[in-house]
Design a protein around this nucleic acid. Structure first.
Lengths: 107, 107
DNA sequence: TCAATATTCAACCATTTGGTTGACGAACCC
DNA sequence: GGGTTCGTCAACCAAATGGTTGAATATTGA
């Protein structure tokens, strides 16, 4: 777990990689399309994707000659739980709480 | 903010620094005492504390010749909120929810 | 005043990181 | 088959990281 946190937090510490994760929130993307908005080589972005993959934050699947990148948000759970360990400062997530209540009331 | 996330996540990516933060959950500590359990020089720990301070995750106050380190858990908020942006995967924190309910029922 | 304690600073070192470029392999399309 | 597109690999580079040691700076206490 400790090593997982190392790689997770390290992966998240780079702005390019965080931007990539945000892009993948919208939809799965091909490597070339992921790279397009960045002012760096495709190889550099490919390396970033490798780091995100190693951290488990995304998965990559090759279909034909295109390699698709998919967000794997569950990989954030460990880090999220670790941070919740400092929970004294982290109030209850009221938005989530309200969504929870709404569902409860509907059901 | 983006730079804040850089430094926050980078600070969290090191196991020594995470261990220090955990130790400071218990209580404020002097630098020497923070360093004691680690198999590295005091200077190395001092550097780690400097990084944590720069990231805002701890604060340091000198009283006499002793420098006290204090956890500043609010500094995790930015990172926490960023992660919540990937909220589709992050269910309601049931522990927090149950604590919330318990307090509600008591009150 | 003087020694001991608490901490940082400065210089150094090895390793990792984030980037580059150019060559390469695999899949597609004409 | 042959050019084109997609993506990675390998070699390289500069800068950052995490550690060391030894000297320096405060502060305390006797």
């Amino acid at each position: 777990m400790s090593q997982t946190l190392d790689t997770t937090f390290a992966a998240l510490s780079d702005p390019t990689r965080r931007a990539i994760l945000s892009m993948l929130l919208e939809d799965d993307m091909a490597v070339t399309d992921v790279a397009e908005p960045f002012e760096m080589s495709l190889a550099a972005v490919s390396k970033h994707l490798g780091i995100l993959t190693k951290a488990g934050l995304i998965s990559q699947e090759k279909r034909g000659r295109v390699k698709w990148c998919k967000l794997e948000p569950d990989a954030l759970k460990g880090a999220s739980i670790w941070m919740q360990g400092f929970g004294q400062f982290e109030e209850l997530d009221m938005d989530a709480f309200e969504r929870f209540l709404a569902v409860e009331l509907e059901g």
